[in-house]
Design a protein around this nucleic acid. Structure first.
Lengths: 193, 193
DNA sequence: GTCTATATTCCGATAGAC
DNA sequence: GTCTATCGGAATATAGAC
């Protein structure tokens, strides 16, 4: 769940994230943010000196949210793995239901060569955390016989993230329903036969 | 295979496509194109009056290339389905080997709300053609027992496109090798057990 | 913390000469 | 078909008053 904004800085951060996931880092400006919040350009620069600062804060915000989620879920060994997977998928469902937003990796993967090295590194660290966590769930679920898939859990995790990220983008081109079908297919493919 | 540029217009078109797939539609300018080709801004505008015109031409170019590919392969009923699938996947492999370009759907899906209705419609038509073709291959392959998957071929086709599109983006964040692992996983998941 | 005002740069696009 | 020149606008960013 997204925190309710309490001050201008938090409002800027959340609106920046929204614009990042709706239009991309190169398609929104500080003026978009300031005018929408009823403040001036300079106020945004006061809180986030440069656009890169804002981007880094957005990535960090997503990292915190993810860490909080997995912390509340507990370790893979003590988790209902299907619930854990569904919680993860729910992040993407929330995105598509929220103005057809795409995910952080899809947005910044597409624009990867237009952001600075700090953003690239920060994004890479977050992706490693997410893939590691997802790999654990998959490994544990397969061990218990609740998931069934071939090959390495890590690669299967990459495939799930790729399909979900790409699915949000493809669903913009086609229709929202396609994303829900994709999610069902992903889950169906994981069910033991 | 990409045609060899013969004149300025073709050079602009191919360079525009390259920039679109490397940096995104909102991160390159006519100046990037003109300076790289050793001409002036006005020359680019002569060939493509507006950026939207260039975008439409890029989408159209990709459509032609796809139509040509499937025309050369023949109908699904007379095709080696694994070869057909591999040909399709090779488009993505060429992309990642070509400066880690992402695919058209990934790039324009991410920027979908920043392009005009003409581009959106043109992109949608192309995606329908590709999904229809891929669905045919999958259906034929499953009928012959060469592919194995659950559910509707159309949804499985959406999943393949999503995974490949997202995979190119994720591989930018992690590493190229991950994309090849993803491709192996996709193919492995399709093999009859 | 927010404002006005401004500096600077860049972008898409066009007019008119060659 | 390409050039020079330029317009109008938008972008990031900063200085200094309040």
């Amino acid at each position: 769940m997204v925190k309710k904004p309490e001050n201008t800085k938090q409002k800027i951060l959340l609106l920046g994230e929204k614009l990042l996931k709706e239009k991309g880092i190169n398609a929104f400006s500080y003026h978009d943010i300031s005018s929408s919040l009823g403040v001036k350009n300079a106020a945004v620069h006061y809180h986030f000196g440069s656009k890169e600062d804002l981007l880094l804060a957005i990535i960090e915000e997503n990292r915190k949210r993810f860490e909080q989620m997995i912390q509340q879920m507990g370790t893979a060994g003590h988790m209902e793995v299907w619930n854990g997977l569904q919680e993860f998928i729910n992040i993407y469902i929330s995105s598509i239901e929220n103005n057809r937003q795409i995910c952080l990796f899809g947005s910044l993967g597409s624009d990867f060569f237009t952001i600075g090295p700090k953003g690239q590194t920060s994004l890479k660290l977050l992706s490693e955390k997410i893939l590691a966590w997802l790999s654990e769930i998959l490994t544990e679920g397969r061990k218990r016989g609740e998931f069934e898939f071939k090959g390495h859990a890590r690669i299967k995790a990459m495939m799930l993230c790729s399909a979900l990220a790409g699915g949000l983008q493809l669903a913009r081109i086609s229709e929202k329903k396609d994303f829900y079908n994709l999610v069902d297919q992903i889950k169906s493919d994981l069910k033991p036969s």
